[in-house]
Structure formats: C-alpha cells, structure tokens
C-alpha cells in the first residue's frame, strides 16, 4: 500500500517545480500578552513547505521558532495571518511534534511512550508492538524498553521523544531541537539515522536547530530568522546530493561555503538579539 504511494511520491519529486504545497503560512504574526505588556514573537512570517521537503529553521534564541512550529502543530493560534495545510490521508495523523523540552511521560515505560500515538488512534496491538520494537532498535534502547524515563539519561529521553513522533507515522514531522540535548556521538549517529529514514520515507519535515552543521546536513532548505521579533531573513537551498553521508557532506567544499554564508547572517542576528537584551536589561 505504502510502496505504491511512495512510487507516485518519487514521481512528484522528479518535477520539483510542480511539487505540492503542504504548509502555507501567510503573513503570520503572534503576540503574547504578558501582564499588560505585549510581546511580539512572530512578525509577518510567510513560509511555504512542499510535499516531501525537509526545511530547517535557524535563528537566535527567542526569535519565535518554537512559536512558529507550535502554530503549525495547531497548539497555538496566530494573532494575524493564515495557515493553510493539506491533510492528504485522514487515516494518517497530520503532524507529530518532537518537543524542545523533555516531554516523555514519566509514568509510562519507554515502550508505552513510543507507542503513545499509535495507542491514541487505536492501532492494533500486534502492529504497534512491531513498530515500537523497530524504533527501539533504531534509537538503541531495546534494553531499556521497560524502564521508566527517570531511569534514563537526558539524551536517552530525547531519543524516546523522537521515536514516539516517528512511530506515529504522521504526514508531517515537526521537530524542535530534537538533538540539542544529545552528546556528540549520539547526535551524529541519530542525524545519520534521521537522514536515512527520511530519504526512505520522504516525509515533510520542519526542523528547528541551532546547529548550522546539522541544518545543512539534513535539509533541502534552510530558513534564517531574524532576532526578536521573528521575521524571515533569508532562505538557502541546500543542493547537496542524496543519499547523504555525514563524512561526505562535511568534506564537501560547498558545505563550508554554505556554512559561512549562513553563519555570517546568523551572526548579525545573534548580535542584534544580544543588543536587544542589553537594552531591555538596562531599562
């Protein structure tokens, strides 16, 4: 069943120009009211994400990345603007999010946590077990399947959180700094694993990260956001061939050029963010 649709999918990808739009955010703004003060988290953000595209958002801390992702996930409503999304197969969940904070349930075992989405939509037990076991292997936590989160390290918990989103098999994956809490070795392993899975499944992904390396290695497109309030500053197409291998990507001269170009822009925004903080702190 999925093999057929994947075939069609690849056909679509061949004609990039005609790729379907899956997420269309038009002039989104979001303001928070905090004790009579209005905080503008997002200001007039427009973003288009196509079918099967891997898009990363980078930007200084506090620029509104999480807010944008939460609006796409339907957990927050925009103050202004519109968000249009395509839900192609109602049998499949539209999106699953990997949260920035530790969001695994402390009262469920690793296995139960990974199975959460499947259980919520009443997937048969046998199927669930098969999928969960698969992901336990992928994240290297088979031995901890029946442990509770408080028995795991921070990085292990984050892996559970990633597996929970993947196991749910949504049309769109939203990931908020999923690897930020991981040690370097596990990060590299999981990045490679993510690329591998993604190249197999070609899901639509919106990915937040602070790491430019990570963004380049994973993405088709990188969106740089401005410091507070968040706007979109620029977009970079990542024309690295797939399948990607970390070693190959990192040794590619194109990688370095792109890295420095993104960094030079990001640097400005980070400085701006610091200045803003300085002003606010001084007042």
């Amino acid at each position: 069943m999925s093999a057929v649709s994947r075939g069609e999918f690849d056909g679509l990808r061949g004609r990039t120009a005609e790729r379907e739009v899956r997420i269309y955010a038009e002039a989104l703004s979001k303001q928070f009211q905090v004790k009579k003060k209005t905080v503008t988290a997002l200001d007039n953000v427009s973003l288009t994400v196509h079918e099967g595209e891997f898009v990363s958002l980078v930007g200084p801390s506090g620029c509104g990345k999480t807010t944008l992702l939460r609006i796409i996930a339907g957990l927050e409503t925009p103050t202004a603007g519109t968000l249009t999304m395509q839900h192609k197969n109602p049998q499949q969940p539209l999106n699953s999010m990997v949260f920035q904070e530790h969001a695994v349930f402390p009262w469920m075992t690793v296995r139960k946590n990974i199975a959460y989405g499947l259980k919520m939509r009443h997937v048969p037990k046998v199927t669930t077990e098969k999928i969960v076991n698969e992901y336990l292997v992928k994240i290297g936590l088979t031995k901890f399947a029946d442990s509770y989160p408080h028995q795991l390290s921070g990085g292990m918990k984050q892996r559970v959180s990633v597996a929970r989103a993947f196991a749910n098999d949504p049309e769109i994956l939203l990931m908020d700094e999923p690897f930020a809490a991981l040690d370097e070795q596990n990060k590299l392993t999981l990045q490679q694993e993510l690329v591998r899975i993604w190249e197999e499944t070609r899901k639509t992904v919106v990915f937040i990260t602070h790491s430019i390396d990570e963004a380049i290695f994973l993405s088709d497109r990188i969106v740089v956001m401005t410091a507070h309030p968040g706007r979109i500053r620029s977009t970079f197409q990542v024309d690295l061939p797939r399948p990607r291998k970390i070693e190959e990507v990192r040794s590619n001269p194109y990688f370095h050029d792109l890295f420095f170009e993104i960094w030079s822009q990001l640097k400005e925004e980070v400085h701006k963010a610091r200045e803003l903080e300085g002003i606010e702190g001084g007042a």
């Binding site: 957990l75 969940p93 699953s96 969001a103 919520m120």
Partner: peptide, 16 residues
C-alpha cells in the same frame, strides 16, 4: 502543560 500539548498533538480524545 507540556503533557497536555503532547496529548493534543497525538490527537488524544478527552477520555484518553
């Protein structure tokens, strides 16, 4: 609150 968000994101019904 994060647990409520997770439940919402995974389409848990009210009862679930």
């Amino acid at each position: 609150r994060i647990y409520l968000d997770v439940a919402k994101n995974y389409n848990a019904s009210t009862w679930q």
